[in-house]
Design a protein around this nucleic acid. Structure first.
Lengths: 144, 144
DNA sequence: ATTCGTGCAAATAGTTTGCAGCAGA
DNA sequence: TCTGCTGCAAACTATTTGCACGAAT
């Protein structure tokens, strides 16, 4: 997706939630769009000088509006990435069990289909699946 | 696995790490063995009256020794369960996106095989997979 | 006797929030 | 103008740690 379309789509989702697409929020989306993996707040602040509290607040707003997605790792930092339907890139995460680093990866369509079938089956138990989370946990190149 | 064998195996793993199997640690293993899902520290404390700091410290020791496993959800609480090779019950988690509740579930052997093949493929990239994590995120019965 | 575990209370750190000033509709 | 965003600093909360005492070898 082109950068302009991304911002247009982000603005639309915020507007749908009664929120504005301010320059700070645009900056957050920009930084996340330029990363090839989910970013922590310190990483985000290192790439764009913003008030920490505004970043926390804006990420919460962006998450509520479905523009960004929160990723959980093994360390104490929350990580954020753009929603998959904005990037049009369904992917999963490699998570380092030692340092908590997160990288993106994809799997075959066949496996994704199998996952989708599994989700449909579980729906019978009273649980309403929204999406799945397939992570590979192990040692990253730096920690191996 | 019988309760006695579980404690025997737990004691052996701790000893291998140069740690003792104290009554507090045994109590933690007991409580986790009696739960059908990962427990938070508050939940653990509610089931057995222990000092909070000891529970945190003992869970860290038990995790290092491979007796318990830490589970991450969407809320701010860490959750703990017995290691799969102690319970002999490979499973995955249903995670509520609203309240963070976690429940266990299993998938077909076919899907597990496909996951194993995927893990083998990713190994080529410099990442050394240790295990996979397949979670279904959605609304639990209480939050639906 | 010496090493390690325990429990209380204090410290730490990621995240959230109150508030006064500013900006956009 | 009026609502809501911003940024600073203070508050909040899960988790960690210092320390003195007790238990185990």
């Amino acid at each position: 997706m082109a950068a302009d379309d991304l911002h247009l789509a982000s603005a639309a989702r915020l507007r749908a939630s009664g929120q504005r697409y301010t320059s700070n929020r645009r900056a957050v989306v920009d930084v996340l769009a330029g990363a090839d993996r989910p970013l922590t707040i310190p990483e985000l602040l290192a790439r764009r000088s913003l008030a920490q509290s505004s970043v926390y607040r804006n990420l919460a707003v962006l998450e509520d509006s479905g523009v960004v997605h929160r990723v959980t790792s093994t360390d104490e930092f929350a990580r954020f990435e753009l929603a998959e339907d904005l990037t049009e890139h369904h992917h999963h995460h490699l998570i380092c069990s030692t340092c908590g680093a997160v990288a993106d990866f994809t799997v075959s369509d066949g496996l994704e289909d199998a996952l989708a079938r599994t989700m449909a089956n579980v729906a019978a138990t009273g649980f309403r699946p929204e999406h799945h989370r397939l992570d590979l946990v192990g040692r990253c190149a730096a920690c191996a």
